[in-house]
Amino acid sequence: MIGRSVFAVYWLMALVFLAFPIVIVAALSFSSASYLTFPPPAFGVRWYRAFLGSREWLDSTWLSIAVAGSVVVVATSLGTLAALGLRHLTGAVRAAIGALILSPLIVPGIVVAIGIYYVFAAYRLVGTALGLVLAHTCLAVPFVVTSVSVSLAGLDRRLEQAALSLGATPSATFRQITLPLILPGILVGALFAFVTSFDELIVTLFLSGSGAVTLPRRMWDDLRFAIDPTIAAVSTLMIVLSAVLLLGAHVLRQRQATAQHKV
């Protein structure tokens, strides 16, 4: 069974490769040193204090949260409506609209970024939170539409038919049957929209100017000059946020599975 243990060592190494950098960043953020050194001389929360004590970092954090929150509202409502409509469309119309909505997933980020910058600059949207919200929504929408569409595809159409046959009007059917059953999908879409906006950097690099510096943008600026461990602290917080959201998505997915359990 040498082959089997070689295989096990190999894929475990690959997993270590995946996890290691993230673990290191997290460990480093608790370093007491003022410069990146290994191993850290001692541990402490010095850099988290530095983060929390910095007006600039906090402003960027709040801006990122505000922008991502607005993106969630716009992208989730527009995306959910569109997914509900797409479900009943067929043929060329569906293909064309589907391609338009999903294309930001595959068009290179830089092309989207400079295209939006090219036009938004003319409308003085550069350096404004509004510009960021408008642009990030385009990038977040495909995730909402995909997630809600998957939920709708898993929804047994007979449930809606049953509701209609029992005397529920189409709008009552939507409110009492369809919506509760696809809600987990909508929420997963909303989570994705949040993460997409919160982490977005390429479009932001062009749009944020000096007036709307988001958290990733501030990290980027800092990284180009000096690597100070504040970034490690910020990164760790972002990793924790990712983990929380990932867990949230997982829980929602379980709920979806339970809710749509084929009876």
Binding site: D156, R158, L159, Q161, A162, A163, L164, S165, L166, G167, A168, T169, P170, T173, I177, P180, L181, T258, A259, Q260, H261, K262, V263
Partner: peptide
Amino acid sequence: LPPYKRNIGMVFQNYALFPH
């Protein structure tokens, strides 16, 4: 008449009970 105005009872294949 749309289905919800026909006042017809219906039992579906696999029952279509509302899971929630």
